[in-house]
Design a protein around this nucleic acid. Sequence first.
DNA 1: CGTGTTATTGAGTAGCATCAATAATTGTGG
DNA 2: CCACAATTATTGATGCTACTCAATAACACG
Lengths: 245, 245
Amino acid sequence: MSDHACTVTLSELKRNCSNCNLRDLCMPMGLSNEELVKLDTLVSQRRRIPKGEGLFRTGDDFHALYAVKTGTFKTRLNSSEGAEQVIGFQMTGEILGLDGLGSGAHMCDAVALEDSEVCIIPYQTLDDLSQQFHSLQMHFHRVMGREIVKDQSVMLLLGSMRAEQRLSAFLMNLSERQKARGFSATSMVLRMTREEIGSYLGLTIETVSRTLSKLQKEALIRIDQKNLTLLKLDALQTLATGRLH
Amino acid sequence: MSDHACTVTLSELKRNCSNCNLRDLCMPMGLSNEELVKLDTLVSQRRRIPKGEGLFRTGDDFHALYAVKTGTFKTRLNSSEGAEQVIGFQMTGEILGLDGLGSGAHMCDAVALEDSEVCIIPYQTLDDLSQQFHSLQMHFHRVMGREIVKDQSVMLLLGSMRAEQRLSAFLMNLSERQKARGFSATSMVLRMTREEIGSYLGLTIETVSRTLSKLQKEALIRIDQKNLTLLKLDALQTLATGRLH
DNA sequence: CGTGTTATTGAGTAGCATCAATAATTGTGG
DNA sequence: CCACAATTATTGATGCTACTCAATAACACG
């Protein structure tokens, strides 16, 4: 049974939300089985993005949302001065492209941090189906609501935390998201560079590196290149929730 | 014609979105007149909030959005440590409460900075009407999309700007919003304290005060208590869009 | 295997926080 | 309406955090 020998039927089944192993995390979360089957008409296409390439760029017309099927992305804002800032990391099951809803054009770049695949959710279709299925509309609203709350918690981090707290909060957040996906909460591979972490956390690459080294010296984590182990979750959590002042 | 002598009919008319002088800024923006009339059934109630009092608090059940009819609000996040951070200022025509969409409970406090009034938009009704009127659904999505983009631009500010840039960007943002409401773009009254500005911008009250004094010394603004005049919009804009590094 | 990218670590410094004192303003009750 | 208290704002002195610059090391990729 080579890849190509698989029947079209099986391949099509695998495309569908109702059979997707991410359905508890992704768009269809909370929908009934019956609704899921209807939803399958929504997500009909996928797209592969090689590492380093973009899914969409600032200014691109908005016509679809994307659910990360495999891989990891970063989103970044380009300032007028040419500088850029990472504003989010998206992993399996998370939604990309909500930034385009406001104006009809994407307001950030989305770049794959590893070879990745996304499910394409055409906005027109989502819109139509939301009209028909109230639960889908509700769910879509919840997704957007969570995005808003997530961004606001990053504002809290950037506005009132020290470097060590920012890093701890970041690592704990990664841990929780890994755990929610059935992976280890204590051991993971960082898909982003120190520079990208720094950009996201409002720190320089040197501060990120130094702070990680410090956390390692304090035996809270073990970091070897991209391989991260969280040794004391409770201590990290304490650091992460502590505030400035 | 005293206030009370006005007919009930006129008073009721005034309540409605179709006659609201904010309709170009607020929820119904972009809807046709016909749709507006239908929308009037959505916003049936108002609520007055005296200065310093809350519209909703963290943990409150979410069952409505609020459009600021008159006045100004701040929203703030309370951290686990009891510290709080301002995450937004809402003025006339802007929507409050989107943070509750994700979980069904509000995730921040909304507090009036002056005696204010809001139009209550029951979420259930909005939901139902969105099902019926596609343009309302589209518009609601745009409102949420703009909220996301707005939050992300604050992340950019907090992550990569110096104090002087943050203040400049903040003042320019206020100016633009004033202008969009038909008020002067160069002269305004700050409804928030220096401490609230500092909390929002991730700065201490002392730094806010010093930086405002500095901008005044450089003749870019004139600040006397809460009375602010922007003297050189272009220079402020240059400061605001410049980046760190 | 060499080259470009990414990461670590050190030394010095800028920017902002902290602490502190004072001034101005707002609100309150007599 | 005034006096007092509480809040808010300004300004100065000092210290710490994280940035900048720099040198080196480790790694990834062709």
